[in-house]
Simulated scan of single mutants.
Amino acid sequence: MNKIKFKLSPKLSKAQKEKKGKMGFVPVKARWVIERTNSWMERCKSLVKNFERTLAHATTKVNLCFVRLMLKRLATG
Rank of each mutant, 00 (worst) to 15 (best):
K3V: 15
K61M: 11
C44E: 12
K22E: 15
R36K: 08
C44R: 02
T54E: 07
V26I: 08
T54W: 08
M23I: 13
K17Q: 08
M1C: 15
P10I: 09
T59A: 10
P10S: 14
A58V: 07
K49M: 10
L74P: 00
K72Q: 10
K17N: 01
K20M: 06
S13A: 14
N50M: 08
S13R: 06
V62I: 14
M41I: 05
M41R: 00
N50T: 00
K72D: 02
N38D: 06
K3T: 13
P10M: 09
R68P: 08
E35K: 04
Q16I: 03
F66I: 00
F66V: 01
Q16V: 01
M70S: 13
M1W: 10
V62Q: 01
H57F: 05
K11R: 07
L55K: 14
K14L: 07
L64P: 00
Q16H: 11
R68N: 13
L12M: 13
V48K: 11
M41D: 02
K7E: 11
T76H: 09
G21H: 08
K45S: 02
R73T: 04
E18P: 03
K45R: 05
F6W: 10
K29S: 12
K3S: 08
C44H: 01
V67F: 04
K45E: 01
K29R: 15
K3H: 13
T76K: 07
V67G: 05
Q16M: 08
A75L: 09
Q16A: 12
N2A: 14
V48A: 12
S46D: 06
K45N: 02
M23F: 07
K29A: 08
G24M: 10
F51Q: 07
C65S: 04
W40Y: 15
M1K: 14
N63Y: 06
T37C: 06
T76W: 12
K19I: 13
K17D: 01
V67P: 01
R68E: 09
I34Y: 03
K22N: 10
H57D: 09
F66E: 01
G24T: 13
F51R: 11
M70Y: 11
K61F: 09
M23T: 14
L64M: 09
C65F: 02
L69F: 06
G77K: 12
P27H: 03
M1Y: 12
P10K: 09
E42R: 01
A56C: 10
F25Y: 05
F66G: 03
R73G: 04
K7L: 10
R31K: 10
G21V: 01
M70L: 10
F25M: 15
Q16R: 06
K61H: 08
M70V: 07
V67T: 12
K14C: 02
S13N: 09
M41W: 03
W40I: 13
W32H: 08
E52S: 04
K49D: 10
K45W: 00
K29Q: 12
K29E: 11
K20P: 00
L8I: 07
S46I: 06
R36T: 02
V48F: 14
S46P: 00
F51M: 12
V48Q: 11
C65Y: 00
E42F: 05
W32M: 05
L8R: 01
A56W: 12
V62R: 04
A58P: 09
M23P: 07
N63K: 12
G77F: 13
F66R: 03
